Computed example of a mutant assay.
Amino acid sequence: MQERVTMTDVARAAGVSTATVSYVLSGKRPVAPATRTAVEAAITELGFTVNTAARSLRTGQSTLVALIVPDIANPFFAQLAAALQEELRGLGLHVIVCNTRADRREERALLAEAVQQRFAGVVITPFRLLPRDIEVLGRAGIPTVISADVPFGPVDLVTPDARTATRQALERVTAAKRRRIAMIAGPRDATGGDPRLELLRNLARQFGTSLPGDLVVRGEHTREAGAEGFARLMSRRYRPDAVFCANDMVAVGALDKANELGVGIPGEVALVGHDDASFASLVRPQLTTIRYPAEDVGRAAARLLKERLDGRSVHRTVRVKAEFLARDSA
């Protein structure tokens, strides 16, 4: 049986120390480009792979990072997962995606599983969890990053900076003389309330309009909820002429229902999504949306995890810039 190639073998072939090979693999310290090239060439030539099982036995900790999301069907989270995985690969860490279906019991069960399995880290978009629920990870010493629109207690956070983009969306809508603005928002019991609704409501006042209570409908962040919410808005005596949506999945559901009801988009009603999921530019009309770049979120979360694994103890918040994308639906 062929003996397993070790880091010592790679170091000998590349003419460097084993520590340098480790730095190339982990990304924990900078390595000169020529040295990195030599190490990577030796890794390829020798067929070296990281022995993650041995590492787990030494440290008593898994090499797995859990990405816990509320809706695996939403392409936003697939994009986030790909970026997170790419950033963590050099550390010998592997990402597993866990779908909670926005169910609090499932969210809590997955946190408990992460503790039991001693995961190397957790990145989570909480939907119905409370800040105190996350404390179980901290007590277990598991590095944790929250991806959410609002602060979530003393923990690393990746959050959107969407104020400018939301203002630009309102500028486009109101410039077209639309004043009856509505929103298909998230459920009342979602974690942290509904910050996208509150931001839109606060900014709308600056444009001489508002979001009256009868023009805010609530539901899950799903395509089905978008269709149902749009139907409810169209049943109002005074229909809205612009509808903002909690995310792009909701917006596509609203577009489905608009087509079914014969409501012109954007002729009768302007439609604005949020996130810029991969399908947003594929539907017809193309979806005007507030782009919250999932890849940037994933990369930011990975960097925060790396810092924690390197010993950083102070909590950090990273704000990811959102961008308004004017397409055909508004």
Rank of each mutant, 00 (worst) to 15 (best):
G15P: 08
T6P: 14
S62T: 06
Q61A: 02
G253L: 13
G311Q: 07
L25E: 01
G193P: 15
S26I: 00
E224R: 07
A185T: 14
L215S: 03
A231C: 11
L130V: 02
R180D: 11
R118G: 01
L199R: 14
L305F: 04
E3P: 15
P187C: 05
G229R: 12
D9M: 08
F48R: 10
A41M: 02
A66N: 09
A280Q: 11
R327G: 06
F324L: 12
S235Y: 05
F76E: 11
A78M: 09
T59Y: 10
L46E: 03
H315K: 01
A42Q: 12
A19T: 11
V97D: 07
I68A: 14
R178H: 08
R319D: 10
L199Q: 15
M1F: 05
A102F: 06
P160T: 12
D194K: 11
S26H: 04
R167V: 14
E224I: 14
N99S: 08
E295M: 05
A277C: 03
L67M: 15
I96Y: 07
I124T: 02
F230C: 14
A38Q: 14
R232C: 00
V39I: 12
R36K: 13
A294I: 09
L157A: 05
F207D: 01
P143H: 01
I290N: 04
T44Y: 06
E228H: 12
P293I: 06
G138K: 06
R316L: 02
E86L: 08
Q85Y: 03
T49G: 00
V95D: 00
A302S: 03
K257Y: 00
L309P: 01
E295G: 13
H94T: 04
L91R: 15
T20K: 09
R218A: 09
R105V: 00
I124L: 13
R223E: 09
T166S: 07
R327E: 10
L88S: 04
P75S: 13
A83S: 15
K177S: 13
A176P: 09
A302V: 00
N99P: 06
V269P: 02
A169I: 04
D310A: 14
G47M: 01
L137Y: 02
G15M: 11
L46S: 07
F207W: 14
V50K: 00
E45W: 07
F76Q: 12
Q2T: 14
S56Q: 10
A182Q: 12
R205H: 14
A41Y: 07
F207C: 04
S281V: 04
I134S: 06
A277R: 04
T37W: 08
G47D: 09
